[in-house]
Simulated assay, not measured.
Amino acid sequence: MEQATVTQPLPGRFDPENLQVTFCNKTDSEMKLAYFLFSMMGKPALVKAGGAATTLALRLGLPVKGLIRNTIYKHFCGGETVEEAQKAVQKMAGAHVQTVLDYAAEAQDTEAGFDAVRDEVLRNIALARDSRSFSCISVKLTGIGRNSIFNKLHLRKTLSPDEQAAYDRTTTRLDAICRAAAAADITVYLDAEESWLQNPMDELAEEMMRRYNQNRAVVFNTLQMYRTDRVAYLKACIRRFEGEPVILGIKIVRGAYLEKEQLRAKAQDYPCPVFLRKADTDKSFNDAIDICLENLHRVELCAATHNEQSITYLTERIQREHISNHRSRIHFSQLYGMSDNLTYNLAAAGYNASKYLPYGEVATAVPYLIRRAEENTSIAGQMGRELALLQKEMRRRKL
């Protein structure tokens, strides 16, 4: 079903160098903390050792929660509860930055644990419906279903009766989330996982889109564009839905498991499913932008990236091609605590920009925080870019 075009003013020029906009929400003490953290994260060996030490300290019950809470947790998370996270939500809303709320706790691999995650997400949808303070949530399918079953389905193996029953419960949990989101006018971003789990997740995402994306993109599937097959998957997905009254929700990212994918492929002697050269990933990401823009009458696109070149490419196409319904069809997103020069300047220029805002109890959020720190060290130039911008602003403030 083709959505009616709403005429909206074209945005202004995206300027990632505007430091006053970039750091408009940062106090002097928050600037100093950010500088300290990014300085530390510029040392990969230190990040790896620190992550291992933190995990061990928590396992041994050592009193380190306060240190974590006041440093890396404070910078990358919104709080331990959704109520605490609301402060960050409101602060960002003041700068026209939207929130994608992300429950960051690692789920217990039990039916009760999966039910608990579903219930937490449903509470968040109800809060979003009633407060209208945010309109997007993130869901990890491994938080509501077993990795082993996703892997077996990925390999096209037959499930046992118990496994099939467990998978049916996973599908029911996801359907409850998507149904509630559709009724509440909330958007659901389904996270991507490792390549050996992803096929059944793609199928689930497409099924939920068929059920709930008739009038708008309630459900978004996430494509990791460092995978060599994702451009082909995107084209095939658009073909599969041709003629159906469905708005496809497509979120594109570069990818989160590069080293893990390469090591597993080498260890198990199968073709590496991810690009070995960053330039190929960059081309794949921009190719996905092109494909989505060509099909914007049937697609909503979320470009979730910290890559300034890709963002500039997309914003320039929006302006050059006078895409007047960009705010309802094209979204930009970055992680909370990173790349504020992109998010805040996109929002200031009139684009639809958001932050992924995680929350959760300190101890259970540690695996998430360690992944964020390790990802930061692996992004070419990320630490230098963050530090250079912080230094300029700190000099401007005479800190």
Results as ranks from 00 to 15, higher is better:
Gly78Val: 04
Val188Phe: 06
Thr172Pro: 00
Arg395Tyr: 09
Ala347Asn: 02
Asp280Gly: 06
Thr81Trp: 09
Thr54His: 02
Thr7His: 09
Asn341Glu: 08
Arg371Ala: 13
Leu46Cys: 12
Leu33Phe: 01
Lys355Glu: 01
Phe23Trp: 05
Leu342Arg: 05
Leu153Thr: 11
Ile125Ser: 00
Glu393Arg: 13
Gln268Thr: 15
Asn376Thr: 05
Phe76Pro: 01
Phe134Gly: 03
Ala192Cys: 01
Tyr344Trp: 15
Asp191Phe: 01
Thr5Leu: 13
Ala112Lys: 15
Leu248Asn: 03
Arg118Trp: 05
Asn215Ile: 06
Glu80Asp: 05
Arg59Cys: 06
Tyr344Thr: 02
Ala107Arg: 03
Gly360Asn: 10
Ser135His: 03
Arg179Asn: 11
Tyr351Gln: 01
Tyr257Ile: 06
Ala267Gly: 07
Ala279Ser: 15
Phe76Ser: 00
Met40Ser: 15
Glu361Leu: 12
Thr364Ile: 14
Ala192Gly: 05
Ala180Lys: 03
His331Thr: 14
Arg210Cys: 03
Phe275Met: 05
Glu259Pro: 05
Arg317Met: 11
Ser378Phe: 08
Met209Lys: 02
Gly381Ile: 07
Ser284Gly: 04
Thr22Met: 07
Ser333Cys: 11
Gln8Ile: 11
Gly51Asp: 12
Ile68Thr: 01
Asn215Met: 09
Ala236Asp: 12
Pro161Lys: 02
Ala105Tyr: 10
Arg396Asn: 08
Pro44Thr: 08
Leu190Asp: 02
Asn25Pro: 07
Lys48Thr: 13
Glu207Arg: 15
Ile370Glu: 08
Glu193Ala: 00
Arg179Leu: 15
Arg385Asn: 11
Pro16Arg: 05
Ala105Arg: 12
Thr54Ile: 13
Glu203His: 12
Ala4Cys: 10
Asn213Phe: 11
Glu244Ser: 08
Asp119Pro: 02
Arg13Trp: 00
Asn147Thr: 08
Ala353Trp: 01
Gly381Cys: 11
Asp202Cys: 06
Leu159Glu: 07
Ala93Gly: 08
Leu159Thr: 08
Ile250Val: 11
Leu174Pro: 03
Met394Asn: 05
Gly350Val: 03
Tyr226Pro: 04
Phe134Thr: 03
Leu33Pro: 03
Phe275Gly: 00
Val47Lys: 04
Asn352Ala: 14
Asn295Thr: 03
Val188Met: 02
Arg254Leu: 11
Ser39Val: 14
Glu242Arg: 11
Leu357Cys: 10
Ile311Ser: 00
His331Ala: 12
Leu153Gly: 08
Thr22Ser: 06
Ala93Asn: 11
Ala353Gly: 07
Ser39Pro: 12
Cys302Glu: 07
Arg211Met: 13
Phe23Gln: 00
Glu321Phe: 10
Ala192Thr: 00
Val117Phe: 12
Ser310His: 07
Asn151Asp: 09
Asp28Tyr: 13
Glu203Asn: 01
Lys48Tyr: 15
Glu386Gly: 01
Val362Ser: 09
Pro367Asn: 13
Ala279Gln: 13
Gln268Ile: 10
Thr22Cys: 06
Asp269Phe: 11
Glu375Tyr: 11
Val97Lys: 08
Pro273Ser: 05
Ile72Val: 08
Ala349Glu: 00
Asn376Ala: 08
